[in-house]
Amino acid sequence: MATDAQAGSTETGSPESGAAKDTFWLGKHVFQNRLIVGTGKYETFGLMRDALDVCGTECITVAVRREKLYDGDGKNILDYVDLDRYTLLPNTAGCYNAKDAIRTARLGREILRGLENPGADWVKLEVLGDSKTLLPDPMETLAATEQLVAEGFQVLCYTNDDPVTAQRLKRAGATAVMPAGSPIGSGQGVLNPNNIRICLEYLKGDDPDYPVIIDAGVGTASDITFAMELGVDGILLNTGIAHARDPVRMARAMNAACEAGRLAYLAGRIPKRLYATASSPEDGVISTRPW
C-alpha cells in the first residue's frame, strides 16, 4: 500500500502509539488502508469489483438477506469478491430492533464461518430508529451491543454523532464506535465536526488507540479528507463511490483523499490565525511601506 510505504518510510506512525508503521488496528484485525467500503448499490457486480480494487480497501461490508430461489440471473456477490484479499464485515442493516439485529449478526457469522473468512468474528451493528432518516435507535443499539459482546462478537457500532451515546457504546464493550457524519446515503459529509471532535476526545482521551470511524454521509473525496484531519481512524462509505457518475474514478479519489487526510492529521496542521504571517523575510525588502 502506498499509504503504508509513505508513512512507514518517514517513521511518522501514530503520534499516540509511536509505532513506526501507520497500521490501522480495528479490534483483532489490522489493515494498512483506512477505508471500509460497502458493496451495495453498484450498477453491476463487475463495477463493484473494479471500484473495490482501486480504492485500496482491505475490508468490505456485506448485508444478510433472504435467499431468493428464483433470482433472475442467479449471480451471487461472492462470485465477484476475492475472499483471500478482503475481510468481510457483515452488517445488520435494515434491522429496527435489537432482537432482529442479534439474529442477523448470528446468521452473518454463520455464513462467514462457512466461507472461512476472518470477518466471522465481528459485525457492523446497525439498529435503525427511523426509515426516513435511517438514524440509529440508541437504546436498541446499546441493548444489541451488550448481547453481541456477551456472545463474543467484536461489535462495530453505527451510531449518531452524540458523544454521550458514543461513550455508552464504548463502555458496553463496542470494539469501535462509528458515528454518522450525516444520514446514510445523503452525501452531506460531516455536518457537525464539533460533535465528532468531542467524540474523539471522550473516546480516545485515556485510550488513544480506540477506533473511531466515520460511518455514513461521505459524498465526495474532500469529505473524507476533512474527517480524517479531525483525527478519526477510518471511514466507512458506500454510496459516495457506488453512485458517483464514474465509480471507479471516484474510488481512486476516495483512496487518495483518505491518505491525504491521514497524513495531514499526523503531520499536524498550523493553527488558524486572524491575521497574516509573511512567508518571505522581513529583512532586506527594498520597498518602503505606505505607512
Binding site: G38, T39, G40, K41, Y42, F45, M48, T61, V62, A63, V64, R65, R66, E67, N76, I77, L78, L88, P90, N91, A93, L107, G108, I111, I184, G185, A216, L236, L237, N238, T239
Partner: peptide, 10 residues
Amino acid sequence: LEVVTLVGGG
C-alpha cells in the same frame, strides 16, 4: 425457516 445469504450492502 429463514435461509439467508450475503448480498451487497453498506
